[in-house]
Design a protein around this nucleic acid. Structure first.
Length: 256
DNA sequence: ATGGCTACGATCCGTAGA
């Protein structure tokens, strides 16, 4: 089985012990990381290297930062959308074991109507254009990461409270559907249809103990890869204990 | 216990996340 995870670690430096423990515990073939919050030279190459992993990294100081951690070294690494524009470190793609994979950290948006909200919607539109220009949905392609959008009511602990709010507004959800319209489906929903599964809980207000969460982190796959997907889950236990990330890893297994 | 945020970068608080 080919095992892949996507995880917003909220600082790879602050979460290094947990990342290494995750690699040892889960033994994934690929981990798509978001929110490294470090520049590329400061990525913990040595720590993951001791466990047999290498990484393709697109970092920046203090904010954002994405990586593709893999047992088999990634090739044909592209940082950003490859269109020459100056970018925040939010997208990286590479080939691992013959499969094209990408790690994405979609902008948060801050608040509906804010400048960052419009940036978020434009970023999602740009992602959709990038996919159409560089990929084909009849080929195996995996897009994982923190999308900062909850797709449906069943992905939100209190849909009526969140309706129209940031992370759950109609334009954000439409923009995510448009990205998936390229030919991507949610590996988690292939295997679990019920409500109440979340990947993020606010650090504040007892979000996790009260299970007030959202499902905003996904592993999205094209049809040929979706057919090969045998299981998917969210590693909710990773959110427990001392100083967790506010996001839990999402995991999927494929029979390539 | 799964418990009232956390990380960063610049100072001893402000900004950002979602």
């Amino acid at each position: 089985m080919w095992k892949v995870a996507a995880w917003n670690v909220n600082s790879v430096k602050a979460r290094l012990d947990r990342l290494l423990a995750f690699l040892e515990r889960e033994n994934p073939d690929v981990v798509l990381l978001q929110e490294l919050k470090c520049e590329e030279p400061n990525f913990p190459y040595e720590g993951i290297g001791n466990l047999g992993y290498s990484a393709a990294v697109f970092g920046q100081k203090a904010y954002n930062g994405v990586a593709i951690v893999s047992k088999e070294p990634a090739t044909d690494i592209v940082r950003g959308f490859g269109d020459g524009g100056l970018d925040e470190a939010r997208f990286i793609s590479a080939t691992v074991q013959g499969v094209r994979v990408a790690s994405a950290y979609i902008p948060n948006g801050q608040a509906v109507g804010a400048e960052k909200y419009h940036y978020k919607l434009e970023w999602l539109a740009r992602l959709r254009r990038h996919l159409g220009a560089h990929y084909q949905s009849n080929q195996k392609f995996l897009l994982g990461g923190d999308f900062n959008v909850a797709p449906e009511d069943r992905d939100v602990h209190d849909p009526e409270a969140w309706r129209g709010q940031i992370l759950f507004s109609d334009p954000e959800r439409a923009a995510l559907r448009d990205v998936c319209g390229f030919g991507l489906d949610d590996t988690f929903r292939k295997h679990h249809g019920e409500a109440g599964h979340f990947s993020w809980w606010d650090y504040r207000m007892l979000g996790f103990p009260k299970n007030r969460g959202l499902r905003i982190d996904f592993l999205l796959a094209t049809p040929p890869l979706m057919e090969a997907c045998h299981s998917a889950r969210i590693d909710r236990d990773e959110r427990k204990g001392t100083l967790p990330s506010d996001h839990a890893p999402v995991i999927a297994e494929f029979k390539l």
